[in-house]
Amino acid sequence: MRIAILASGVLPVLDGVTVSVDARVRRLVARGDEVLLLAPAAADGARPAGLPEAVTFVGLPSVPFGAAASDRNVVPAAAREIDRALAAFRPDLIHVDEPERLALGLRRIPGQAFARRHRVPLVAFFHTNFADYLGAEGRYYGLVAPVRAVVWRVVAQLYNRYDATLVPSAASLARLRRFGLANGRAGRFNGADTRGFRPDLRQPGYWADRWARPDIDGRVVMLIAGRLTADKGWADWQRVLPALAVRLGDALAIVVAGDGALRGEVERLVAPLPAGCLTGAVPRAEMGALLANSDLYATLSRFENASLAVYEALASGLPVLGLEAGGLPGQVRHGVDGLLFRPGDASGFVGGLARLVEDEDARRALREGALAQRPLLDWDSAFAAWRDALSADDPP
């Protein structure tokens, strides 16, 4: 099969889109499929390091986009490059990751014109709840709800221009349908690298050896990992972390891994904690060990769709604490492999986490629930579900 993938980003930019695109491209190549990958070009125009040589890569004209220094998005001139590359490649199918972001840069529906002219199937993949980011800083979130509803309807109509929309969260698909999406297919299309994220990477003295923090070894460790930006729930963490320090003292070590626009604020928040640690950005190759040497993974983001970080935490044997929001209820089974709380329920979160810290048996039960998920979480299973959805003959 000849498949063209038009994506909003590629590694080394690190996010859910780039990791999932890389996982699928590698498996397509291993199957013997021919792959054309089109994505925003890096500032230096170089081919992405580590991309399989068998992949035909076309870097598209782009400009900086978002808070990350290396993150970019296409510009209108990229439309001509896309058409030329597709005409030369002659794909059997075009797959578009995060088309709303690409459409913002291209000022047209990504891939549509070529697909319709040449009668090529055109499939979109829904990655990010962009509409929810409006007012994400917290103060005006409720006030802009009508605007978000309008944006959700616009997004749903954009995706309706595709032959099918793949959504890795049943909750997100249900929401999109309420706003008018007519061609959605849900499935577990995202996964985790279960060879790189596994519990046997745990080792004695890890925190002393790697982070010069011997005080963390031997304590229950809660890990918060990701961009230090408003959408990751830092307005809520400002209430939760001090409350945890009062309730648990140094019985709980709180480790924050990541970097971003809020780093200064997060540093000031973490510094007074009895056993707090801000690592900064952690290389992806080291994330497996970081997770395996933690005991709990926590997120207060309200905007996740199907979080790769959550799948990686579960694959590492970590119970996940999160919110009953976005796609998390489809990833975390409350009381089985994690705990879910109502958005804004800081006292409930603190109380639930405290019970886990104080009750080793309760932590062990949730850990066993997370480990039971491992066979279902690997990228091979996610890739098979994705391929089945692409080859579906019947309309959704």
Rank of each mutant, 00 (worst) to 15 (best):
D236H: 12
Y297G: 12
L314K: 06
D132M: 07
E53V: 10
F197E: 02
D393Q: 15
S294L: 08
E81T: 06
P214T: 03
L244K: 08
Q331Y: 06
A170I: 01
V320H: 05
D337G: 08
L314N: 06
G351C: 04
R148C: 04
V10T: 15
G135Y: 08
G264Y: 09
V167C: 14
L28F: 15
P272S: 13
P91E: 03
E286N: 09
A46K: 13
F341T: 03
W386F: 15
L353H: 00
N305S: 14
G351I: 00
G50S: 02
R161N: 09
A243W: 02
G280N: 07
A253V: 08
V151I: 14
F126K: 10
V155S: 13
V154Q: 14
L291D: 02
A171I: 01
T165R: 10
D15A: 11
E81M: 09
L134M: 15
R161I: 04
R367D: 01
D44R: 00
D393E: 15
E98Y: 02
T279G: 09
V150E: 13
V246W: 07
L201M: 03
R284P: 05
V270S: 03
L366R: 00
G317I: 04
P64Q: 07
R178V: 00
D361Q: 08
R175H: 10
E360G: 14
D193F: 03
V96A: 09
A245P: 07
R210K: 15
A325L: 10
G135W: 02
Y297M: 13
G330A: 10
I3A: 01
V256M: 12
L390V: 01
Q373M: 08
A315P: 03
R27T: 03
A23S: 11
G184F: 03
C277M: 14
M287W: 04
D295G: 11
D209L: 11
N305A: 15
P110L: 02
V310H: 05
R27K: 14
G135N: 09
H118W: 13
V13N: 03
L371A: 11
